[in-house]
């Protein structure tokens, strides 16, 4: 198995996968919003929460998106290392932040944007290191 970077085609597939993943996150947040603020202090209440969530159409839409992401993901994992594939999934932070801002009308403070940017820079460093230093064992 080659450890030298991630092939461009696989990168493209992973990138598309993240867009679909952010649709799933939007659907999950809509599912949670419909539940209000349920208290969970017992197994019974936990089961009631799971049951109520399972009755939400948004949950199933989200799960359909996750299923698509899952099939793509296991296919990609058979081609490259988990620790190489994982960083690419971080592109979803931009998509999810934008979806939160535009479609869920959440307020995102400069501090929060900074944190999200730092996470992205972390991802960039990880990816760049993957390209340049791959294959060299300590």
């Amino acid at each position: 198995m080659s450890k030298r970077g991630v092939p461009l085609a696989i990168l493209g597939v992973l990138f598309l996968n993240e867009a679909v993943d952010s649709v799933a996150q939007y659907c999950f947040k809509k599912t949670a919003l419909a539940q209000g603020h349920p208290p969970i202090a017992s197994l019974h209440e936990a089961a009631a929460f799971v049951g109520a969530a399972l009755g939400s159409g948004y949950l199933w839409l989200g799960l359909a998106a996750v299923a698509l992401v899952f099939v793509t993901w296991i296919t990609v994992l058979s081609k490259i290392d988990l620790s190489a594939a994982m960083p690419v999934t971080s592109f979803s932070y931009v998509f999810v932040a934008l979806a939160s801002r535009i479609f869920l009308h959440e307020a995102i403070s400069p501090l929060r944007w900074s944190g999200i940017a730092l996470i992205l820079i972390g991802v960039a460093i990880v990816s760049w290191g993957e390209e340049g230093e791959g294959g060299r064992l300590p």
Partner: peptide, 23 residues
């Protein structure tokens, strides 16, 4: 094999998490 760049990036991600939590 996890390269030192990947560890550095992972540290950066941790710092980002701290900022978001502070927000």
């Amino acid at each position: 094999f996890v390269s030192w760049q990947r560890w550095l990036g992972t540290g950066c991600i941790m710092a980002g998490i701290v900022l978001v939590t502070m927000s």
